[in-house]
Design a protein around this nucleic acid. Structure first.
Lengths: 159, 159
DNA sequence: GGGATAACCGACCACTCCGCTAGGATTTAG
DNA sequence: CTAAATCCTAGCGGAGTGGTCGGTTATCCC
């Protein structure tokens, strides 16, 4: 398993927030119910997203969460990084501030990291996939899926 | 961390075997020493590689392991899969026999997997990177690195 | 044949992380 | 004031990681 459920749940949460096109905040309990996820666990995840500004919160009654930015300006790389921590294929890979990867064994002198070539490529593939996908895409995908599903349901009800 | 040390150690092992161009088997203890890895742990890893035919073993004195095929016919995807199990970005992704991904929540009817789009792309990126790299490439990379390292050492000795 | 060498095999173990719960404190709308 | 919501910290059971250990089998060399 490349990622844990934190990424899965967190992304689902972000999509759910993204579907709320007006700025009204969505209560976490609503998300928990519609996605059938444990509320108290979601609280931990949303805290991570809030810390990096991906979501904003409004406390008190009728409060909730909303996106910190428009969905089409949110790369999924940021989301997953906030939830899972830095994306590194291997223990010895420390994330360089500027996208580049760095192997902490490198200074060992001997050929410690023949594997660096491989992990660098893997990391490139992952970050490219994540950075190349915006939240808006996922929201649209979900919307289509929901429409298809509800029209199926309507057909069943009609029959 | 995308992968555990199993992949790291296992790949290092494969590279080490690949550097032995003649068919002579390499004792695991030799690999363990030159890569500074625990021998008894390597035994478990090499067992997985043997089970899928990536390496062959010769028992008894002067025995050891050799590659099951030429290094340039070994995709790293196979190696990593043998070591880490099927590459799936998320719990619900079951590996289809034919490269395609399949989400086990899909039949839920509701929009369970808006995230499928994202994980599919991620998985594509990873498998592409892994499948597009052969063991031969890594062996060559290690050889260059070793050459540079030893020539540096020679320079130091000469000075 | 008898060592020595090395692949095999299975059990076990400490530790960490994941997924989740519990309980409370704080803020805010009505 | 009170209900609803965010926020915060602590803990916890289970699973997986990263090994270790002891023993068994196969093979070469003398």
């Amino acid at each position: 398993m490349l990622f844990s459920t934190r990424a899965e749940y967190g992304v689902r949460l972000m999509v759910e927030l993204g579907r709320q096109e007006d700025g009204a905040p969505v209560a976490l309990s609503a998300v928990a119910e519609s996605e059938r996820l444990p509320l108290s666990y979601l609280e931990h995840l949303v805290a991570k997203l809030r810390k990096v500004g991906l979501v904003e919160s409004q406390r008190g009654a009728h409060g909730g969460y909303r996106l910190g930015r428009p969905a089409d300006e949110i790369e999924m790389l940021e989301v997953v990084q906030a939830l899972e921590g830095a994306i590194a294929p291997m223990e010895c890979f420390e994330p360089d501030p500027e996208g580049k990867v760095f192997c902490s064994h490198e200074s060992d002198g001997d050929r410690a990291c023949a594997t660096k070539l491989l992990w660098t490529r893997v990391q490139g593939g992952v970050t490219k996939a994540l950075a190349g996908t915006t939240l808006a895409e996922l929201v649209e995908f979900a919307e289509q899926h929901a429409a298809a599903s509800s029209s199926r349901a309507a057909a069943v009800n009609a029959a």
